[in-house]
């Protein structure tokens, strides 16, 4: 896909997510929207090896949205890859439906359970070690929240992955600089995240997380990195795509009223 197609795909993903959340009044729009371009780059930008209709492919790349409150960002993509019927999207969080508010490992295309923060790097390191053990070439991509980097287990995992030179492990930090109560740098400073990861032995990249022109070359470069895991610090805007939600922590899990809904629809081209 060219950049224009990817941008259209990103808009499509925001539209799908909006409809899912609004229909059920459940889910976290802003957390999903900040990592939309990252996900689209991975799945549609020629980065991950995932075959349509074949979620159990033993050679597939593993994609884990460790910031579990945004795991639903994968659902429309996985349906688009024919991993389950598109009709499931409309049954999001409904009794009898496949798709929950947080990702469930039984959903085709979801590699592990999420919802509690801080598990993705360790779990991903497990996939990466197993791949090496089995002589497999697949990569594991872990999407972390920046707020998730407050969890100590992230850094335990970071140290472990660097020691084992897991160049088949890639982390993407969705650096939207917000958590529920406000701005990370005001609440409890995360500081220079790139430096922190680098000092743990990771190859680091910092990009505009909404720019395919920056994301795709970074992912391509990572494929050439040997002997260490890589991390992309993706600077993003929480709620990107709906102007009144952008950069506003109070929208973490709030639902728009009728007027706001109309405005959001108009901005999303719905």
């Amino acid at each position: 896909m060219n950049i224009n197609d990817l941008e259209n795909k990103a808009l499509w993903l925001r539209q799908e997510l909006f409809e899912m959340v609004i229909k059920q009044k459940k889910g976290h729009i802003p957390s999903c929207y900040s990592c939309v371009e990252v996900m689209v780059a991975l799945y549609y930008g020629g980065i991950v090896n995932i075959k349509h209709g074949y979620p159990q492919d033993p050679d597939r790349d593993r994609v884990i949205v460790s910031k579990g409150h945004a795991a639903m960002v994968q659902y429309p993509i996985l349906a688009d890859f024919n991993f389950f019927p598109k009709s499931e999207l409309l049954k999001f969080t409904q009794s009898g439906g496949l798709l929950g508010m947080y990702a469930d490992y039984r959903i085709p295309g979801i590699e592990g359970i999420s919802g509690s923060l801080g598990h993705g790097i360790g779990m991903g390191a497990g996939f990466a070690i197993a791949a090496r053990h089995d002589g497999k070439k697949y990569q594991s991509y872990i999407i972390l929240g920046d707020g998730e980097c407050y969890e100590g287990s992230i850094w335990e995992g970071a140290m472990f992955a660097a020691h084992h030179k897991l160049d088949n492990l890639v982390a993407i930090v969705d650096r939207n600089a917000l958590c529920i109560l406000g701005e990370t740098e005001e609440l409890l400073s995360l500081g220079d995240l790139e430096n922190k990861w680098r000092s743990f032995g990771w190859e680091t990249f910092t990009v505009d997380g909404h720019s395919f022109n920056e994301l795709l070359p970074a992912f391509e470069k990572i494929k050439q990195v040997v002997g260490k895991p890589s991390v992309i610090i993706a600077n993003t805007i929480k709620g990107k795509g709906i102007s009144f939600m952008e950069g506003k922590s109070e929208w973490h899990n709030r639902m728009p009223n009728l007027e706001q809904m109309a405005q959001a629809r108009s901005e999303l081209g719905l």
């Binding site: 598990h119 497990g126 996939f127 335990e156």
Partner: peptide
């Protein structure tokens, strides 16, 4: 695993999901 029991358990999950 290092003296990192939290990571040890997370690691185990990825390994077990991969058939280990």
């Amino acid at each position: 695993a290092g003296i990192s029991e939290q990571n040890m358990v997370d690691l185990a999950s990825g390994l077990a999901l991969s058939g280990k």
